[in-house]
Every structure is written in structure tokens, then in C-alpha cells.
Design a protein around this nucleic acid. Structure first.
Lengths: 224, 224
DNA sequence: ACGAAAAATTGGTTGAACCAATTGACGGCT
DNA sequence: AGCCGTCAATTGGTTCAACCAATTTTTCGT
């Protein structure tokens, strides 16, 4: 504004003004430094800030590129928030709310591709090989597929956040995943079947059942 | 792990391991540099990353302090995402989902204090003075109160995020808030009444009505 | 005991130099 | 002509030393 914008703001402005697309290259550090009349070092600090927000990807020897921003950077801030005393129950309730909405959108919108992808995935999960290394990751993958089928990026983002934090929580409390793998597969099949039938009610109830069976991890711990 | 953790990870680890509380001070840049065996400059880059995520606040002459993280940092990444074509509808749907759950929890849990606070707020809004400076901020304040009554911190955070992004969207499209102020007050009264009655169904429908009347901002734009 | 001045602390910025990964150009070989 | 390896140029990564600027702490005079 007054000609006194910070380096960070100037770079942000540059990205917007130049209408940079994902994958486009930004000027080099040295070029930016020259253009802004600041030292290379100060420019680097601003770039690091943007990198922390997944806005850019800095590649040694190559250059600085505009990212397709994912929102995984919220993980650490949320982790701290959780540590500051946010009750897990809050997280669980929120997660249920979001997953229910997602699965219900998936019933409306899931296309043939989405369904095939999930079918393939579940078949794979049913093999002995897949069952050997079960650790909750599969549940996440399935949830991601459902979210993709639902086609809402913002809900996907919230799903990502809440799942990530749930995993963090489980890990930080040294809980073991006591869930029965076969049950998990069965539940996934139920969910998929409901989506194929476009039966929203069944899908929601299958999803809730699944989530709650995952949460038995907590209950088992608390009763010990 | 292999003793090769990045500086950023080391600092994150430090924050977690030392159980730092909001407001606590981190070691100085020079101290961190010494401890990690890295240059001060490299440490600063990592610190700038954490500052970009609102995890810490760096104050010249004073030191580095742990923040109570707000999530305003998603502002810019989200702006880019919108620019890339993320549909606003996604945001609206997610927001509705969250607000509905919140208002329904509020019906279950709202205490006398919560109700009084909202009553007072709505009375104030009904005065000519308050009506003069209406710009959507009041809607946000009311939503925050409902969320507080609902008592779910995670949903509150998501609410905050989604509302913030909505405002961002409205602003970036130079939309004017065409909503009728008196209607907004009336709708708030409806929501509060339903909460007092612990009538979940009425509360949900009042909330949806309110949100949708806010969204007329978009529709008006689109029809022009 | 108070308050102003001085000193020490701590982040902010710069410049130069050199390292490391990547990319691109050149030239020889087939 | 086309392929491939080598070497040079480009570009980010890191360090050091020095100094500036804001804040905090100490000192000292009243």
C-alpha cells in the first residue's frame, strides 16, 4: 500500500497478479531479491513461509514452483490444539458428522469409476497378504475414496484433518488397534453396497456402525 | 530418527517434548542454532515456517513465544484453491453440515449462561445503533455463541474456518451484503427460541433458513 | 524508592563466499 | 543423424561475520 509491503506480501501479490498456474515457476531467489531490493536471505525466509503453507515447492538446483495446495499443513497446529486439552469426544463427534454427510453425498453422486475403485480396493483387502499389515491405514484409504465419490473438497479437507488427529491420538496414547480385520472388511462391504444401491439411510447407518466399531479402541482402553 | 531430523522437525519435537504451554518462551535463535549444530540462518528459516502456521510468535528484542494457534493462515492457500476452481458450493454444503450439528448440540446442552448471553446479544442487535454497522459480523458472533453453547471445540474450529473462508469469498467477489438486517435479527430470535425449547428440529430448520437467506448474496450476484 | 540512562539481550538484515543438486550445452562416439 | 557422457552454468542450501533495531534488564543518580 504505502510502498512498504512485506516481502511475503509482495510474493503473494506476484503469484496472484501474474495469474500463476500450478506448476509454474517463480523467479529465482536472486531475482526476487533484486526485484524487491532485499537480501536473498530475507527473501528465503518469506519463501519458507509459503512453502510451509504448501503454496510453493522449492527444489534445489531447479527452482521454485507453484503447488497444487494440499492442506496437510494444518496437522501440526491442530495437534497442538488437541494437546492443549481439546477433548477427543469433540473430535469423534465432528468426525461422525462429517463422515455421515460424505457418505450420504456419495450415495447421490458416486459414479461408475468411484464404485469400481472401491470394489477393487475391498477385494484386495480381502486377501491374506493385505490382512497382514493392517493398521488402520486401510480405513483411511476407504474413507478417502468415499469422499472422492462425494465430490466435496472442503468436506474432504475436514475429513483429512479429523482422521489425522484421530491417528495421532491413538498413537500418542499407545493404543493398539484391537479391531477385527475381517469385521472391518465386512463393514466396508456394507458401506459400498449401500452406496451402489443409492440407499442413503443404509449407508449412513453402515458408516456409523463402522466408525463406532473403530472407536472400541478407546473404550477398551478406558475399561482397563 | 537416524539423527538426521530436519531443523523444523527438531523444533516441533522440542515443543511437544517440553510440553510447552501457550505463552511459553522457546530458546533464542542463537541457542537453538547451537543446540542443533546449525547456523542461525537455517534455524530462522524453520522458525519462519512455524510462524507462518501461527504456531509461534517471534518478537524482536524479546524472544520466541508459543501461540494459541488461530487458523487464519489457511487464508492464502484457500484463496489460491478458489482461484483454481474449487466450487464455493462445497464450502456452503460443509458449512451447513457443521452449523446444523452445532445447533442441534446446542439444543441438548445450552445452559442458562449461554441462553442469557444470546438474549442479551440479540436485544442489542435490535437497537438502531447496532443496526447501523451491520456487515455480517453479527451473524458470525451469533454463530460463535451457538457453538459455545454446543460445547464442541473441534466443530467450533471448523465453523471458524468455514465462516472465515466464506467472508473471504464474499470479499474477493466484491459482493455486497444485501441481507435485510431486520430479517437477520428475526432469524436469530427464531434460532434462540428453538434452543430454549430444546426443540432440535425447529432449531435445525431455523438455522438452515438463516444460512440460506445469507446465501442469497450469491444468488443475487449470479442473476445479475 | 523512584526514574532515567546505559548495557545487555534478542530478533532483523545484509554481503560474501562456498556447497550441492539439477539442468543444459557441448562434443565425441556409434 | 542420433545417442550418451562430460563439463559448465544455473539455482537452491548453508555458513560466517558483522551490524542494525527493538526490547528487556541492570545500573546509577537523585
Amino acid at each position: 500500500m504505502t510502498g512498504e509491503a512485506s516481502i511475503l506480501d509482495s510474493i503473494k501479490e506476484y503469484i496472484i497478479e501474474e495469474n500463476l498456474e500450478v506448476g509454474d515457476r517463480l523467479p529465482t531467489e536472486r531475482a526476487l531479491a533484486g526485484r524487491l531490493g532485499k537480501s536473498r536471505h530475507s527473501v528465503r525466509e518469506a519463501l519458507k513461509s509459503l512453502e510451509a503453507l504448501n503454496v510453493i515447492k522449492i527444489r534445489q538446483g531447479s527452482g521454485i514452483y507453484l503447488n497444487d495446495p494440499s492442506f496437510s499443513f494444518i496437522d501440526f497446529p491442530f495437534e497442538l490444539k488437541l494437546k492443549q486439552g481439546m477433548p477427543v469426544e469433540d473430535l469423534i463427534v465432528a468426525r461422525e458428522t462429517v463422515e455421515v454427510k460424505i457418505v450420504s453425498l456419495a450415495c447421490e453422486r458416486a459414479g461408475a469409476e468411484d464404485v469400481n475403485e472401491m470394489k477393487k480396493f475391498i477385494s484386495y483387502r480381502d486377501t491374506p497378504a493385505a490382512k497382514k499389515r493392517y493398521d488402520g491405514v486401510y480405513d483411511f484409504e476407504m474413507e478417502r475414496m468415499v469422499a472422492r465419490a462425494a465430490g466435496n473438497e472442503f468436506l474432504s479437507l475436514i475429513q483429512h484433518m479429523s482422521h489425522y488427529l484421530w491417528m495421532k491420538y491413538v498413537k500418542s496414547h499407545n493404543m493398539k488397534n484391537v479391531e477385527d480385520i475381517n469385521m472391518s472388511v465386512r463393514e466396508h462391504k456394507e458401506i459400498l453396497a449401500a452406496i451402489i444401491d443409492k440407499n442413503e439411510e443404509a449407508a449412513v447407518s453402515a458408516m456409523l456402525k463402522h466408525l463406532r466399531s473403530v472407536y472400541t479402541v478407546i473404550n477398551n482402553e478406558k475399561n482397563n
